[in-house]
Design a protein around this nucleic acid. Structure first.
Lengths: 202, 202
DNA sequence: GCCTTTTAGAGACGAAGTGTCTCGAACATA
DNA sequence: TATGTTCGAGACACTTCGTCTCTAAAAGGC
């Protein structure tokens, strides 16, 4: 992704360190985000980004030849996995992880992410990004469930993907399809229902 | 939506009956769907539609001035609600309704619908359409749950929206986010988990 | 502080797309 | 057959797109 290849002294890191490049990248990232939130995914064009960021149009093309590059660059800075320790109790872990998911999905960028996901059908690069985002977003949940299996709190043959779908799916549905705010009570209900069921069928 | 306003003899129905108009509308609807499935939402422009449908570009503009109009026209023909009778047993009703949802969500048009939904954030007209689509798609499920409440199979204070989110959400998650095929076993698991839980907590 | 290298910004340029308009021909209805 | 409407084709001005060139700014090695 780095576009600078100096002859006399290449940078030690893969990232660009030239302050001008850093400035451009940051300005564009913020401009894209503003545009996305203000007018939606469709408003993001090289021209608009250049105007919004206050930089030259050719500069935008130089760094991000395709429109997709612009969007991926703006979305690349996702929150780190936050490798959190298991508390030793599934209920606590689930509350923490679904709470995190709840906060993540309250972002105004979510509708645009959804639009991107729909488009990923015809864009392999976007598809890869989506897969990574999903894996990252649900990794905490997955670890919590694995820990519970290790402790015997969940049966060893408990299907993790199905469990994640049961926990994260309703939040996703309510936020994206029903367009309702994700209230604490709703999240609590989902967790309780899940725990009730595994307790009853175990 | 009708653009024909004849002077000499207005049609009795609100729909156009002029065979030429009917032909145009049908040709465009099919062209849009082909384009969407072949190349995605973005490929739908007046120009592309005109070429694909084999009609004049001006004709497309005449009927559907905005791009959104084209898409709404192609999506307007959603399947009828299919007011099905309750079987008298919740498990049977859920299997039937979620099976229907499973089939609906297996359509190749779903990713595009998702993209549209994401975009609905900035388009009131699209938002209305989405709300209607959601209400239509889950009406059978809602009726089944209401019937179960009426029979006492579910508690009277059972929250319908939450229940629908718990049932439809996981399917939605698996199909759209995880990009996995919706297998019968998965749907069965979701239903069983839900029934188990309401039985245990009732 | 100089000197070389790289980037940024501005604008030109052709190509392609957009939306509107007009025209004659085709067509539906009376 | 007569009348009114829609259709397809093309012209038109306008915008957007992607590339290119040029000069000034600035970064970093010496």
């Amino acid at each position: 992704m780095s576009h600078r290849r100096p002859v006399q002294d290449p940078p030690t890191s893969l990232d660009d360190v030239d302050p001008r490049v850093v400035r451009t990248r940051q300005a564009v990232r913020e401009a894209v985000r503003r545009l996305v939130q203000r007018a939606g995914f469709e408003a993001v064009s090289h021209q608009e980004v250049a105007t919004e960021a206050g930089i030259g149009r050719a500069t935008v093309y130089r760094h991000w030849p395709k429109r997709t590059d612009l969007l991926l660059h703006a979305l690349a800075e996702v929150e780190a996995p936050h490798a959190s320790q298991s508390s030793g109790e599934l209920a606590t872990d689930l509350a923490r992880e679904l709470g995190r998911l709840q906060r993540t999905m309250s972002s105004p960028l979510v509708p645009e992410l959804i639009a991107l996901i729909g488009r990923a059908e015809w864009n392999p690069e976007l598809r890869t990004t989506q897969t990574e985002l999903l894996a990252t977003g649900t990794s905490g949940l997955r670890r919590a469930l694995e820990a519970a299996i290790g402790r015997g709190e969940l049966p060893a043959d408990h299907d993790l993907d199905t469990a994640i779908a049961r926990l994260a799916g309703p939040l996703f549905y309510r936020r994206v399809l029903a367009r309702a705010p994700l209230e604490d009570a709703f999240v609590t209900t989902i967790i309780s229902a899940y725990l009730n069921e595994v307790a009853a069928s175990g």
